[in-house]
Measured scan of single mutants.
Amino acid sequence: MAAGGDHGSPDSYRSPLASRYASPEMCFVFSDRYKFRTWRQLWLWLAEAEQTLGLPITDEQIQEMKSNLENIDFKMAAEEEKRLRHDVMAHVHTFGHCCPKAAGIIHLGATSCYVGDNTDLIILRNALDLLLPKLARVISRLADFAKERASLPTLGFTHFQPAQLTTVGKRCCLWIQDLCMDLQNLKRVRDDLRFRGVKGTTGTQASFLQLFEGDDHKVEQLDKMVTEKAGFKRAFIITGQTYTRKVDIEVLSVLASLGASVHKICTDIRLLANLKEMEEPFEKQQIGSSAMPYKRNPMRSERCCSLARHLMTLVMDPLQTASVQWFERTLDDSANRRICLAEAFLTADTILNTLQNISEGLVVYPKVIERRIRQELPFMATENIIMAMVKAGGSRQDCHEKIRVLSQQAASVVKQEGGDNDLIERIQVDAYFSPIHSQLDHLLDPSSFTGRASQQVQRFLEEEVYPLLKPYESVMKVKAELCL
């Protein structure tokens, strides 16, 4: 049975990233139509530049190519590739079939990587351009969430054990800070992308030097003109047959890092959902379990974690691919890159769409948070109580021993009897502590235990987050809708 299948058929496997999760716009960027249309555009740009620099290419040939950029006979191309065992030459023939007058000058002087690699770089750039505003929107939604809850005390956790208090907004800023680093890295790697350009079979530009009869300047002009037509500021000066596969490492490393950030955020949300302090959106008709109707599973956060793990592992592909590119190139890269580049971007696209949807509907339960604080705060307040007693004339050592005994009794009630923490009640009825009984409410005010959390939130948002989001103001209103 021949390899390949009808990918629109229910009898043929289709990647869930495309069929179930990723956005239509990201799927289109990695589609065959987008790819092969870009090949034709690159052939047109090459012909236009070659004509401008004096090669015998007519206006009629150029116009014929322009008129057929979208006229792609995919069936013919597939048949040609089956016959020739070469995808680029299959599309040269297919393009030439609908451009008979231009057929002889299509791909003039070029090698397969002229269309293959340059198209990949265009796709990487455009895919990054799709991700950047999506990530900015996630940051914006979380920034709104953090600002609104900047002063809401909550129990902090280290080692997932109760620690000092923080605020809900401050905790959210930990998430935002990681995503801001990801946004900066995505922008950097996007701006650092260079075009492969017009380089020939081993990167020496020998074929173009021959076409222009040894004119170095025209060869350099050709490279520059096509690079500018493709919208790049610069091209690699040095290439082998391909652009260095280190570029793929750079791009997928940034995406993998984004995956790590999203995994951490969504894990926190899942843990908070278990504590009943916070939940992701839950639709009115949504079913959490087929057997347990009360369940409210954090399905979206779980999906993000599941896909983020996949995204983090994909960076190993370009690392290994770059390491086995012998001399000017081997074909070890080809099949692998067809999979890992598309999957990385479709996965990143999915987790950003999902995280935006989550961040637009996060639900906080202040009463649950308050109750958990009441359970733990008495123990945390013991040092403040000791200091207040010393100020009232008591002995630190005597007070410490009193607190120690009462704390152990209260802990026994919590752990052995399943009761509430009654340390404060014990202190309130103990005559030894009568000098500070009137101060206990103040000493137990949760806001006095959150330090500068709310001020940190305000400063972080104003100095770091809002300036970073400013270039994306025009796209901030787009909502994230999930079908599944």
Rank of each mutant, 00 (worst) to 15 (best):
A3I: 15
G5N: 09
H7K: 13
P16T: 09
L17G: 04
A18Y: 15
S23C: 00
S23M: 05
E25K: 13
F30K: 00
R33P: 09
W43T: 01
L44S: 12
A47F: 06
A47V: 07
E48Q: 08
E50P: 00
G54Y: 04
D59I: 06
E60W: 09
E60V: 08
Q61P: 00
K66A: 07
I72C: 06
D73S: 10
F74W: 09
F74P: 02
A77T: 08
A78W: 02
R83Y: 12
L84T: 06
A90L: 01
V92G: 12
T94W: 00
G96W: 01
H97K: 14
I105A: 13
I106N: 05
H107D: 01
L108V: 08
G109K: 03
Y114W: 15
V115T: 07
G116C: 14
N118D: 11
T119S: 07
T119L: 08
L128N: 15
L131N: 14
L132V: 11
L132M: 10
R137M: 12
R137T: 10
R141M: 11
D144S: 12
A146E: 00
S151D: 10
P153F: 06
T158N: 03
H159M: 01
Q161R: 06
Q164A: 14
L165R: 03
V168K: 00
G169D: 02
C172M: 10
L174K: 07
L174A: 08
C180W: 06
D192K: 10
D192G: 14
L193E: 12
R196T: 04
G197D: 04
T202G: 04
G203R: 02
T204G: 13
A206L: 09
F208D: 04
L211V: 13
F212N: 05
K218F: 09
V219Q: 11
V219K: 04
Q221W: 13
Q221L: 13
L222A: 12
L222N: 02
L222C: 08
K224I: 06
V226M: 15
T227S: 07
T227P: 05
G231Y: 10
A235P: 06
T242H: 14
T242G: 07
T244M: 08
I249A: 06
E250W: 14
E250F: 07
V251T: 15
S257F: 06
S257Q: 10
L258V: 08
G259E: 02
A260I: 04
A260S: 10
H263S: 01
D268Q: 07
I269A: 03
R270Q: 12
L271M: 06
L272K: 04
F282W: 12
Q285C: 11
I287N: 04
G288T: 01
S289P: 06
Y294H: 02
N297F: 01
P298G: 05
P298K: 01
P298C: 10
R303I: 09
S306W: 00
L314R: 09
L314F: 13
V315M: 15
Q320L: 09
T321A: 03
T321H: 01
Q325T: 09
E328V: 01
R329Y: 00
D333H: 01
S334E: 01
N336A: 12
R338K: 04
I339R: 02
C340S: 08
T347S: 14
L352H: 11
L355F: 14
I358S: 08
I358R: 01
I358L: 12
S359H: 15
G361C: 08
G361L: 13
L362F: 05
V363W: 11
Y365K: 05
P366V: 07
I369Y: 04
R371I: 00
L377G: 03
L377K: 00
P378H: 03
E383H: 02
I385Q: 05
M387C: 06
A392D: 01
Q397Y: 06
Q397M: 13
K402I: 12
I403R: 05
I403G: 02
R404D: 00
R404Y: 06
A410I: 01
A411K: 14
A411E: 10
S412Y: 11
S412C: 08
S412Q: 10
S412P: 05
S412L: 10
E417D: 13
G418E: 02
D422K: 11
R426W: 11
I427Q: 00
F433N: 06
F433Y: 12
S434N: 13
I436Y: 09
Q439L: 12
D441K: 11
D441W: 04
L444R: 02
D445T: 13
F449H: 14
R452E: 09
R452I: 10
V457N: 03
V457E: 01
R459F: 07
E463L: 14
E463G: 10
E464G: 14
P467R: 06
L469W: 03
L469R: 06
Y472R: 10
Y472K: 03
K477I: 09
E481D: 15
